[in-house]
Amino acid sequence: MSALLDVRDLRVEFDTYGGTVQAVRGVSFALEGGKTLAIVGESGCGKSVTVQSIMGLIPRPPGRITGGAATLDGHDILRDQKIDGKDIRGRLVGMIFQDPMTSLNPTMTIGDQIAETLQVHRRYSRRQAFARAIELIEMTRIPEAAKRARQYPFEFSGGMLQRSMIAMSLACEPAILIADEPTTALDVTIQGQILDLMGDLQRDTGMAIVLITHDLGVVARMADDVLVMYAGQVVERGGVDDVFYRSAHPYTLGLKAAMPTNRSDAEQTLTPIDGSPPDLFAPPPGCGYFARCPHAMQACEGNPPQAFALGTGHEARCWLHHADCGQDAGAVYREHSQ
């Protein structure tokens, strides 16, 4: 089965006063219908820039796509956001953002903002679109949908706003929902509700989800496949079980060590990853994680690691997997994975 969304070797740069930042340095991934792909990594690793460039949302200038391709259903969408003359955004791909408080227009009613998408893409009349908007609000489990549709964003709580964002992005039944840290700005209890909602809606509609997050708990709960990004590159990819239980990159291990768990039996201390990500004005020639890696080797400093295939769909960019490497990579990782 050919992928619904296929991204190959995407490269994005930003011109800033300090110089050119290479925010995304050759990212590839494929997404199949009905699946959930999680992209994880710390702040500034290029997760959001990756999806925003695919959606044509990075401001240009200063942003610039310098290479790569993204195809949706076989159509190149990196150069043109239109398929058959119609915008894919809102129609084939829906998107929700991190901060629902600022992501909605404060001077329009929620209903109007949802209806707008239908008016533009489906040519619904105002009345029709508004009626459908109320149904969509109901679908996201907001009580008193008809009344709520006539209210303004400032009258909503953060969780309800994010539900409305979901209703808005799903108005035209897109094949893909891109969720850019959808729960980061919300209370923990609300986070769970929003994730449940997304999961239920995915089952009902069969859409694919690209979920961007730095929360491994969210990944474990939602994802089929995982992409671990570091310093603008994918360092490990694979099925969620592979990445969690057979982690194959020191950075993934670092992330896991820094994640709190709810196992009360373990006297557990969280281990932060020392140091900070490399300067993307001048990315290091070798492995981006070299300076922070507990297993750094001489080879890592000047040679960018290639992707080593470790199993079906599981690969990692780390020299530890090289056949000539004296260390037993398997042993290293087993030790960490308990």
Partner: peptide
């Protein structure tokens, strides 16, 4: 390539 560990 040299796979000697380094201390940083």
């Amino acid at each position: 390539l040299s796979f000697e560990p380094v201390r940083i």
